[in-house]
Amino acid sequence: MSFNIVVLAKQVPDTHNVGKDAMKADGTVNRAALPAIFNPEDLNALEQALRIKDKFPGTTVSLLSMGPVRAAKILREGLYRGADKGYLLSGREFAGSDSLATSYALSCAIKKMGKVDMIICGRQAIDGDTAQTGPQVAEKMGFPQITYTEEILDVTKKAITVKRRVERGVEVLKGKLPIVITVNGTAAPCRPRNAKRLMKYKYAKTATERQTSGTDYIDEDHSYLILNEWGANDIDHDPKWLGLGGSPTKVKSIQSVVFTAKESKKITADDVEIEEMMKELIANHTIG
């Protein structure tokens, strides 16, 4: 028994290090100005897929990402850790997509990839925190979904059993394949890079990357170095559902967050000062 698993992954700006030049005038994100990383929960998703592959050799784990050409970096990262194939969906037609347009484009790409048993992705991406893409891909594919997954407990030819962690508890759900699974950050962390795989896939590139580096030719023995790169023309789609035009939500305005500073009392760890503060808090009935 083996499965075809698609893992959805997003390259995200590291939102812990956001500078002033991170936003463009139209309100979209200037990704070029930020360090780009593999979305953390997508790594948890990859691990769940690789565990199925460990159990069922012959399973294929394909990574799919939509983004600019430089997002190929996370596909390589995925190959180093155990994924079999990388697919990049890239092109100006996809620019300005909200979660719904993104989900539509991804679903068109998945349909082109052939028979799929499971689509596994992170619960949400750290740049938007919306948690919408997984369920929306599921709806577009007509698959059921299980979100907030902490662990895949069992897989059979027809069904999958999953433990999910929600705010106030734990559920065990059993669903029919094909299905979409979204994975929480509380799931097992992704295994590290494998040194042999790192050597093998170091030069895996997309078509655009090969052109840029002048290594356009790949002989048959090295076809594993091809990262599939698809544009809008490569997938069967209706252009009106792509990109900004296919996005029902529009950004009206963006504001940087500024908090109104208060007049603070500045004190130190000195005993007298702490005691004085505690007396004040008791006197004005804040405590006690």
Binding site: P248, K250, V251, I254, Q255
Partner: peptide, 16 residues
């Protein structure tokens, strides 16, 4: 809030 809370965005759905 978006982008790790560093900005606040106002979103509208004009048509749908």
């Amino acid at each position: 809030p978006a982008f790790g809370g560093n900005i606040v965005a106002t979103i509208v759905n004009p048509e749908c």
